[in-house]
């Protein structure tokens, strides 16, 4: 494998990593607060739709960012009503949100789409570092949304470990009764977890649109990334830094399928095998990690205040 092939492989891996990483970070926040948000796929798709929609009407990247976050916050609010106040079963509620997002984004994109074209977000090469052979382009010549996903993983790790909100959020997922006894509202924390988590997942959609979609929306363009995030979170044991590592490996596995189709002695392997490979690896990894302990109160509706 020559250096050009290796460099391309890494560039693609990081691009494929970023949307899944955003969704994984969102899921970590939600699950740490005690809510199993199966609706992450829907959040990602809605974020993609909102960002592409404003771009199609000639708005700037900043407006696209705000639109992505905004729709994520609204979706988080809707999920909070379902999970926290109405105490809807979190599995069924999440599936409903995903179906709703798929239908809603398709219909509203058809009805509301503008005519402007925008393209991808511009790459921001970091001087000197982007010139490093092989890894320079992959790590230091990406767009702002890809850089931000990596920074967000590090930041979230510290927020969860070192801030009062992070401590309480984890308590809401592990021992909500103790939190309640201390006079802290479990409901309020779970609402904040859902809103922040959904906004992070929606940013995955924004990143997808502006990194791979040339600024446009495509029906079902999330293509299961939100579901992959559910597995990533389990493997990462709710640790954002491990999620960063695992999504990078997953991106690499996905990128390999395209290189493999072009490499002579591997090109004889059926394409379907390469397409399925990352998912097979994910299933095996999740199966191996079956002993992983969820936060104790994940998926259990809180009946107190």
């Amino acid at each position: 494998m020559n250096t050009v092939v290796l460099a391309t492989l890494l560039v693609i891996a990081i691009q494929l990593m970023a949307p899944v990483l955003w969704a994984s970070l969102g899921e970590i926040v939600a699950e740490r607060s005690g809510v199993l948000n199966i609706g992450t796929e829907g959040c990602l798709l809605l974020g993609a739709w909102a960002s592409a929609l404003v771009l199609s009407h000639g708005q700037s990247l900043f407006v696209a960012l705000v639109a992505g976050i905004g729709v994520g916050v609204l979706t988080g609010g809707l999920l909070a009503v379902l999970y926290v106040w109405r105490r809807v079963d979190q599995i069924i509620g999440g599936i409903m949100v995903n179906l709703l997002a798929l239908g809603l984004t398709t219909a509203l994109w058809t009805l509301l789409r503008g005519d402007e074209t925008s393209g991808n977000a511009p790459s921001l090469p970091i001087p000197l570092l982007s010139d490093i052979p092989v890894v320079g382009e992959a790590l230091f010549d990406q767009n702002i949304f890809v850089y931000a996903s990596i920074v967000a993983a590090v930041a979230l790790f510290f927020v969860l470990q070192r801030t009062r909100w992070g401590l309480r959020l984890r308590a809401a997922g592990e021992a909500p009764a103790a939190l309640d006894a201390a006079g802290v509202s479990v409901r309020r924390l779970r609402v904040s977890g859902l809103v922040v988590g959904s906004a992070l997942a929606a940013l995955g959609g924004t990143t997808l649109v502006l990194t791979s979609g040339a600024g446009s929306f495509v029906f079902d363009m999330s293509a299961g990334r939100g579901f992959i995030a559910l597995g990533v979170v389990l493997l990462a044991r709710w640790n954002p830094l491990l999620a960063l590592l695992i999504t990078a490996v997953f991106g690499l596995l996905q990128a390999l399928q395209f290189q493999a189709q072009s490499i002579g002695w591997l090109s004889g392997v059926p394409t379907d095998v390469w397409i399925a490979a990352p998912y097979v690896v994910a299933i095996i990894a999740v199966a191996v990690a079956h002993g992983t302990r969820y936060p104790r109160a994940v998926g259990v509706a809180w009946t107190g205040h």
């Binding site: 391309t8 693609i12 691009q15 494929l16 791979s212 363009m221 395209f258 189709q261």
Partner: peptide
């Protein structure tokens, strides 16, 4: 519909 996969394939080519 997977634009990420389509982009990755095209980048490889």
């Amino acid at each position: 519909s997977d634009v990420g996969a389509a982009q990755a394939a095209a980048q490889t080519e």
